[in-house]
């Protein structure tokens, strides 16, 4: 029997010294659509997201216990290669991270080095990824130009293209629009709605209207605990949400 959930999180606890960042979180993330993490700042949304591709381990001084399964296989098992795992799980950060190189080099930054495509197919892969990220028409004449000259909204779409070029099974997005203006935010939101038909997306946001526009299901976090999860309308209407977002309640 195949398990319908993409991620199964059981008893996940993350502490930094004595400070708990996540306390025994149990959560199933389904294999389709957009799943959102909401909650106030410092609730542990990003920590939870980064534990899904083991990026959290790169932060020194954290202890991570509990179990996370990705497509039914435990990702914290000793035999798992975290790099191979991260290559299957794409990630978009809050601030676009652009390497000081050309647009083309940025798109191919990961896929070229992962060795998943033959060299002669790389250029096509770059075009495909840039089209998927709705950036191709804006940059097709200056692929060799520096990516640092792009606007911040274009940079974020370039980061998305870089991730898509690696053909990940799932996309993690950590508040991907919080650094962007309204127009760029709308562009990213449109892309999220378009891409979700092809691959599941896990989105962290502190913007409730955005959560309601994009997410099929939500999980509400507060002070490192999972307060509730379920269909978006249900979570957004729950009294727990109000309490959680009121200062000093958590």
């Amino acid at each position: 029997m195949t398990d319908p959930s993409l991620f199964q999180i059981r008893g996940l606890t993350v502490t930094s010294g004595v400070l708990p960042l996540l306390q025994s979180v149990n959560l199933d993330i389904p294999a389709g659509g957009v799943f959102g993490f909401i909650g106030p700042s410092g609730a542990g949304k990003s920590t939870l997201l980064k534990s899904l591709n083991r990026l959290l381990e790169l932060t020194p001084g954290l202890s991570i216990t509990g179990e996370v399964k990705f497509k039914a296989s435990p990702i914290y098992a000793p035999a798992v290669d975290p790099n191979a795992l991260r290559a299957r799980i794409g990630m978009l950060f809050q601030q676009p991270v652009i390497f000081p190189a050309s647009i083309l080099a940025n798109v191919l930054f990961g896929v070229k080095r992962l060795g998943i495509l033959p060299r002669r197919e790389l250029h096509d892969a770059a075009e495909r990824a840039l089209r998927e990220a709705a950036l191709w028409d804006e940059v097709k004449d200056r692929l060799k130009g520096s990516a640092l000259n792009l606007s911040i909204g274009q940079q974020q779409r370039l980061c998305l293209a870089r991730t898509l070029a690696c053909q990940p099974d799932v996309l993690l997005m950590d508040e991907p629009t919080s650094a962007l203006d309204n127009r760029s935010t709308a562009a990213i939101e449109d892309l999220v709605l378009e891409l979700q038909s092809r691959q599941p997306i896990v989105l962290v946001t502190h913007n409730l209207p955005q959560a309601s526009r994009l997410c099929g299901r939500l999980a509400l976090l507060c002070a490192g605990r999972l307060v509730m999860f379920g269909p978006t309308a249900e979570v957004l209407d729950a009294p727990a949400l109000e309490q959680c977002l009121t200062p000093s309640s958590c």
Partner: peptide
């Protein structure tokens, strides 16, 4: 953030 972004793409430490 550069190291983090590269690691998130699945690159090894040597890469």
């Amino acid at each position: 953030k550069f190291g983090e972004a590269a690691a998130a793409l699945g690159l090894r430490e040597s890469q």
